[in-house]
Amino acid sequence: MSKKSFNFTIEPWSVIHENKEYHTPIFNLLQRKMRLEAKDEKNEGEFYVLEAPEWVNVIPITTNEEVVLVEQYRYGIEQPTLEIPGGMVDPGEQPLQSIKRELVEETGYNSGNWSSLGKVSSNPAIMTNYTHLFLAKDCELIASDKPEGDDNERINVHLLPMDDFLDLVADGTIHHSIMVAAVARLLLERQT
C-alpha cells in the first residue's frame, strides 16, 4: 500500500463570527458565519455545526480470538444495535485513558495490549470532533457483574469469533458507520 500523502488544493473558509445557539450535555449547536476569499471569488455563508467532545472506540479481542461486542438501544434510529465498545473522552482524559475506562465499564473486559488504529472525522460536514480508534488484544474478563451503563443505557455483552463478527459487518447487521470505519482500519492494518 502506498505511503504517499495527498496535497489538498481547495481554499479554506475563515470564521468571521461564531455564536453558540444551543447547549446540551453531549454537544453544542454553533452558528458560524464564514467567508471564502479565493482568487476570483468572494463568498460568505452561515453554517450550523455540532461541537462535540472527542469520541473513542475499540475492537477488543479476547485470548480466545473472540470479539467483545455490546448490544444496546439507540434512540436516534429507535432500534437496538450491535457495536464495539466506545464512548466520549471525558474532560482531562486522553483518548487511550477514556477507551480503557469505557471497555471495562461497558463489558467488564480489560487488556494490557493496546494499539492505535488512528482517528476518523466523526462527521466532518456538521461535526467538529474526531473518533479515536483502538485495538485491544488478549482481553480478559475482570468484572463478572452485568455492566452498568449510564442511567438510560442498558448493555448486553456478546462474544463472537472474528469471522462471524466480520460477516455481521458485511451483511449490515453491524452498521454504525464509525464502527465500520474501525473495522476498515483493522483490515487495512492486517494487509501491511
Rank of each mutant, 00 (worst) to 15 (best):
A52L: 10
L188T: 07
E102C: 06
V15H: 02
V180R: 11
S2V: 08
G86F: 12
K4W: 07
Q191E: 12
I10K: 09
I10Y: 02
I174M: 12
D145C: 01
A143Y: 02
L160T: 03
P124F: 03
P85I: 09
S98K: 00
E51A: 09
L188I: 09
D145W: 03
G76H: 06
P161W: 00
D167F: 05
D138L: 03
V68N: 05
T62N: 05
G45L: 04
Y73G: 04
E83F: 00
E66A: 07
N7A: 11
N156V: 11
T107M: 10
T131K: 08
E11T: 09
P147W: 08
I99W: 11
G92W: 02
N64C: 01
P147K: 13
L160P: 06
I99S: 11
E78R: 04
P85C: 07
V56Q: 03
G149D: 06
T62A: 06
E83N: 13
E11C: 08
P12A: 12
K39D: 15
Y75T: 04
D163E: 12
A125Y: 02
L188D: 10
V70F: 01
V67N: 05
P161Y: 00
W13P: 07
T63L: 08
S122W: 11
N123F: 15
F47P: 00
S5Y: 12
K100E: 14
T107D: 15
I16E: 15
F27Y: 14
N57L: 15
E51C: 03
S2N: 15
K42F: 13
V68C: 08
Y73N: 03
K4R: 14
H17E: 14
R185E: 15
P12D: 13
H23A: 08
N7T: 14
L186S: 04
R190V: 05
L168Y: 05
L96H: 04
Y109S: 08
G86M: 13
K137S: 14
K146L: 09
R190H: 09
Y130E: 11
E78W: 02
I174T: 13
N113D: 11
V169D: 03
I10Q: 12
K20I: 11
L96W: 02
L69V: 05
I142N: 01
A136L: 14
L133W: 04
V89T: 02
G45T: 09
H17A: 01
K4S: 14
A136Y: 11
A170I: 00
D167W: 00
E78G: 00
Y75E: 13
E54L: 08
S5V: 14
E54D: 15
T9L: 12
S14P: 06
G172N: 10
T107W: 08
I126D: 08
Y22T: 03
E153S: 06
G45P: 00
R154Y: 12
P95C: 01
E71A: 07
E71G: 06
R32F: 02
L168M: 11
D150M: 11
V68K: 02
E102G: 00
A182M: 02
E105P: 03
T24D: 10
W114L: 10
T81L: 09
M88F: 13
Y22W: 12
E106C: 02
D167H: 03
M34G: 00
N64V: 00
N110I: 07
F27H: 07
G45S: 07
I84H: 01
